[in-house]
């Protein structure tokens, strides 16, 4: 066991973790944050996307111990205030960007990273940006629309 100190969603945490546990498992089990989903667990589906020091990564492809000293943002930490949703969450609800919802946390975290770099992305830029997030329900059209709408609101 190694003890890691990191910031998760703005809160300083110390967690005892085995070195062979992924950041995804650490977030879901040791940190108790189950908003981040485990889809494929090998970096293909993007459901486990979180931001580490502002960068979108597959938390299944990173060891928990590697997050020592970093700042992690998960879907639970995205809302600006309790009882207030992030514009991306609002837009996904309003425009039907979520159906079963399993890909949604990862999709929204990736979209947040994308909009932070480029507040008004074209459809092509959005599709390139979310290429590593697989959705089996929506056909992506409504997801792209929701990201574009949220971008307008955030800009």
């Amino acid at each position: 066991m190694t003890t890691i100190a990191l910031t998760i969603n703005g809160e300083a945490r110390e967690l005892a973790v085995e070195p062979y546990r992924s950041l995804l498992d650490v977030l879901r089990n040791e940190a108790g944050l189950t908003g981040t989903k485990k889809g494929c667990d090998v970096g293909d589906c993007g459901a486990c996307t979180v931001l580490v020091d502002g960068k979108p990564v597959n938390s299944c492809l990173m060891l928990g111990v590697e997050a020592d000293g970093s700042e992690v943002l998960t879907i639970e930490g995205l809302q600006p205030a309790p009882n207030r949703l992030h514009p991306l969450q609002e837009a996904f609800i309003r425009l039907g960007g979520a159906q079963c919802g399993f890909c949604t946390p990862g999709m929204i975290m990736m979209a947040a990273a994308l909009l932070a770099e480029n507040p008004s992305p074209s459809e092509e830029e959005i599709r390139f940006g979310i290429a590593g997030n697989i959705c089996r329900c929506t056909g992506y059209t409504k997801i792209v629309e929701a990201i574009q709408a949220a971008g307008k609101e955030l800009a």
């Binding site: 970096g43 993007g46 996307t49 960068k55 979108p56 990564v57 597959n58 492809l61 990173m62 990736m110 990273a113 940006g129 290429a131 590593g132 997030n133």
Partner: peptide, 9 residues
């Protein structure tokens, strides 16, 4: 190569 998430690592 992979996705943006993969490329960040």
């Amino acid at each position: 190569l992979g996705s943006i998430q993969v490329r960040h690592r």
